[in-house]
Nucleic acid binder design. Structure first.
Lengths: 197, 197, 197, 197
DNA sequence: GATGAATGAGCCTTCATTCAT
DNA sequence: GATGAATGAAGGCTCATTCAT
């Protein structure tokens, strides 16, 4: 009986994950707008109706996928985060994590970029995502207080700190950019120059 | 007869422009994916069939609209460009032009952001657009040669110079950002710190 | 063991009745066509699959519900029926019973009206229902033989005797009709005038 | 050029009529709920999309069909109507018209019966239909004033005058009824007995 | 007996595009 | 050049029903 239960639970999660994976893969292949529910279903090896067991509707499927990725990205960004380290080191570490995450999960990153520029984007409860980045915000505030980084609104700091990375890692914007160690180091060094006091 | 011809040509351009304007306006209102050809036609006050007289298909309509906007943005960016000015001043001038263009034409900017993250993006002949930015590239190269700005690939320099501006000006990414003179100055100052040697 | 069985049987009937009640209630709320099996199941607090334990399929569920209501209506119509009473009194009594039943069970009546105009209607074994009305037929025949009511086919007599009541009591046909005692008396008096010799 | 125009107009009406005819025919064959837009389209020999050129949506198609039939029925009912004739004769004439219309257009009648017991029924602007029956109402009022027919609410009079006819002519309710001249005369005679003073 | 999960078929509607006029 | 009408294909979603548990 116990085994039964486990099998059932695992089965469910497997199917739900298969749907999400198919969603991400399909968006990578044919784009956001062309990724219909029935194509996703076919890709995931399930019936279109099955998707509506795990998600309320297409919107819910895409938003859930997005939030899940963003949270995992937040976790990755914060990995090895140590608030006792110098501000510079902590931010550089986060930047490298970001580059690594994007390199290791290009499909996930690509999905979020497409999602962020679609109407679905407005349906996301941003607070839920920002929670994962709270330590980063606190670190920036600490850097400001210690007069290590510029006293600018968070959005400006973040725009200069990490947004260049997003654009560099986006093959649609910079198809020729190579995330070599030298390039990464240089990109992050420039980002630091932008925000440091 | 000559007059007749001119009238006809003017008429044509009026209709073509009406279609493009309707496209941009509709994408702003209901998003990229929901902007169908017939809705655009209705918005422009023409028949759907008429659109296919001026454009090969929907793809051509969107791509043409995008290129036209990008070129006008390139022109705006380069306005008052003076290669004899100091590198710093010239780049800051371009940055301010960029902010001003985006502020004055939010609809156009919004369209390009949506377009850039759609599958249509891959259909654009990038060379055609980059031509408008040639003077900027030359200026950057000059700055590198003069050891004024860092010796980094163009894409890195551009990513730090202008991409933060795009993200800041995009209400979907930074809904609360205000393009006040102080914020603009600060953003551009940070960008300069990023690339200067 | 005997008690156990009785409990089980009672339980069964409770569930079956819950399904039928949910069917009637849902048809009243959202109409016949929109009442799907899964919605009925949710309304009855059971799984969709459970419905298929008590009924062969959707068709069987609806037909069974209809027949059950029609039989109970037949019983109500014949209540206090006394074949020794004058024909007029017996028929008027039946008419008043009919009005009362409809007023007291508007939901059931509404269901039958919708059912009677659906394709499911053809699946009903009419003989089963007419059995409940046998005494009425005999009374009519007696009235004919005694030259009290017109010598017309039963269907004509019934059409004039009770069908006006159905239409008057149907809020979709006569939304403003009030089943006040005066209106009921008048309606039945008119019906009697129609059939009496 | 003139001919062109006529051809175009005729073509349009032919197609629109074909859709309405297919709707009525299909509802007769497979019932109201099962008559989907695509089946109607196939029956009419057009694409499903074409239906949406002539009608806003399925609801509009069904409601328009219903109103058109009801108006034609109203016209038929009032044919040869002469307000100077005796009340009895005028009403009997209308009743015969009604029987004849139903016999000649069983498909149309069947459609309205199904429509009247569907949720779509509530979408009909009843005033539009009642207009066609105005002369009938005036005749009834005249009969009341002249103390020829009973002083009862219109709905009671109509329920007894014409509703029995509807039920008799509905093959689902009275599958065996034959609209022979004798039966018709008898039915109408009974109806008159019901309402006459 | 009872269930939640699963499904292919079908729902209504809109799509990008073409045709006759 | 310009159009309204027309279309097959596909969109997101729900259906009645069955299955393993």
């Amino acid at each position: 009986m116990f085994i039964y239960f486990r099998i059932v639970r695992v089965k469910d999660e497997i199917k739900q994950d298969a749907i999400i994976e198919a969603t991400v893969a399909l968006v990578n292949e044919i784009g956001f707008a062309a990724s219909s529910v029935s194509k996703i279903a076919k890709r995931a090896g399930v019936s279109p109706a099955t998707i509506y067991i795990y998600f309320e509707n297409k919107e819910d499927l895409l938003v859930s996928t997005y939030i899940q990725i963003k949270k995992s990205l937040g976790d990755a960004l914060m990995s090895n985060f140590n608030p006792t380290h110098p501000v510079h080191d902590a931010l550089m570490n986060a930047g490298k994590n970001l580059f690594k995450y994007i390199s290791d999960h290009r499909e996930l990153f690509y999905f979020t970029e497409q999602f962020a520029n679609s109407p679905y984007c407005e349906l996301v409860n941003k607070g839920e995502i920002e929670a994962a980045f709270q330590p980063l915000f606190e670190l920036l505030q600490y850097g400001i207080d210690q007069k290590i980084i510029k006293d600018a609104p968070f959005e400006l700091l973040l725009a200069h700190l990490y947004h260049p990375i997003f654009s560099l890692a986006n093959p649609r914007i910079n198809p020729d950019f190579q995330p070599s160690p030298e390039n990464i180091d240089m990109a992050m060094s420039m980002a630091w120059d932008a925000i440091k006091l």
